[in-house]
């Protein structure tokens, strides 16, 4: 299947057209968030981030950034495991209108249900491929909670060009992870 350019922010309608297995090149601004940021977004009402998250893309990532003069340079920015955010994810989708989540390893049933209900997709990036993704970052636009959360857990706004992902959980209840887990469960029974 061909890769397709996909613009962030996105409309619900466009997101609902996507299917698991489709490959996308994301263009626009990604907002990184991981463990502490999820809890913080759930507990607070971030007025600064609300308009950016609405229709936006949340990237499960704790990047390495380096300050050169006044600008931040992204050195490494691969995905982190998404499942840890399962307790918060559905709530954040509902609250902020996030249209696209990027991470690795997939998410649980509560998130899957939120994807279906609100029209959001979960996209997979390749874990560990940090330079590949850092090279798609055109600029680091802003950072929130850097002092309080530290570099990996701050919320970084990164403008990306052709950031490659694959839709792995869509708005129609499909999940590539669930399919593979089922296959491996059958095989597990056979090998032991």
């Amino acid at each position: 299947m061909q890769q397709r350019r996909f613009q962030i922010p996105a409309e619900e309608k466009t997101v609902r057209e996507l299917r698991a297995g489709q490959r996308l090149l994301l263009n626009g601004t990604l907002i990184t968030a991981r463990d502490r940021a999820h809890r913080w977004l759930a507990e607070k009402n971030s007025h600064e981030l609300q308009p950016l998250l609405d229709g936006g893309a949340l990237y499960h990532c704790g990047p390495i950034m380096q300050k050169q003069g006044d600008v931040w340079i992204c050195k490494a920015a691969g995905p982190t495991s998404s499942l840890r955010q399962e307790p918060y994810m559905a709530g954040l989708i509902r609250k902020y209108g996030i249209r696209c989540i990027i991470g690795k390893g997939g998410m649980g049933p509560e998130t899957a249900e939120a994807l279906r209900e609100y029209g959001t997709v979960y996209c997979s990036a390749v874990g560990g491929a940090a330079v590949l993704y850092a090279n798609t970052v055109e600029s680091v636009e802003a950072v929130f909670r850097l002092e309080a959360f530290g570099m990996p857990e701050a919320l970084w706004l990164m403008k990306v060009r052709d950031f490659p992902v694959m839709v792995s959980m869509d708005t129609h209840g499909n999940s590539l992870y669930r399919d593979i887990e089922k296959i491996s469960k059958t095989r597990l029974g056979k090998i032991i």
Partner: peptide, 22 residues
């Protein structure tokens, strides 16, 4: 995925950047 992993390893070594952010 394996292609991406290998390409990333090549880029990291060439650009002297951490091959994984973690």
């Amino acid at each position: 995925n394996l292609h991406a992993i290998l390409e990333n390893a090549t880029l990291a070594a060439k650009q002297r950047q951490p091959l994984c952010q973690d």
